[in-house]
């Protein structure tokens, strides 16, 4: 189980630079590590969410050649927040999970921007939010919804309920 999780984290971290560009729509790519971190946080709790966000963020940072540690921090926070929400709210419904993912993506973007201000990140806040963070948040929501649907179909198929 731990091996699967480790592979998922490694794959998730690396998928962002290899698979995600192929999923680009209108210049917007989904943030696969963030989606994974949020779902792991929601399903496995704050600790797993936090650690997985950190690992995948770190891989993403190293792979992308940006500020190493920035995404590790923000994704760790996002995974942690997802785990905290899961402990307090009823989040098993996709109608909660998907908007939650959109909001957390937006919050992660906002946090990253704020963090990078300490390192004199030059992009303007308005442009970044409008053209990068918001479209990515929406895309993450759509991809998250598709993933939840695919998982539930796979689960139904595995338990045989689809044929009854």
């Amino acid at each position: 189980m731990r091996l699967t999780l480790a592979l998922a984290l490694l794959g998730g971290g690396l998928a962002q630079t290899s698979v995600a560009p192929a999923l680009r729509i209108g210049g917007v790519s989904p943030d696969i590590p963030l989606i994974l971190a949020v779902f792991l946080g929601l399903s496995r709790g704050a600790e797993v969410g936090c650690l997985s966000g950190f690992v995948m963020g770190l891989i993403q940072d190293a792979a992308a050649g940006g500020f190493v540690g920035a995404q590790a921090l923000t994704k760790a926070l996002a995974g942690f927040a997802a785990g905290q929400i899961a402990g307090r709210l009823w989040v098993s419904d996709p109608l909660v999970q998907v908007p939650g993912l959109v909001l957390l993506t937006f919050a992660e973007g906002l946090t990253r921007y704020c963090l990078l201000q300490f390192f004199h990140f030059p992009a303007s806040f308005g442009d970044l939010m409008l053209y990068v963070v918001l479209p990515q948040a929406l895309y993450n929501g759509a991809l998250g919804a598709a993933s939840v649907l695919a998982l539930s179909v796979a689960e139904s198929w595995r338990s045989g309920s689809l044929w009854r």
Binding site: A46, F54, L58, A70
Partner: peptide, 13 residues
């Protein structure tokens, strides 16, 4: 754990 992760991240940054 959260604090550790944040500290490591900031350190890396």
């Amino acid at each position: 754990l959260l604090v550790s992760v944040l500290v490591v991240s900031l350190l890396l940054l």
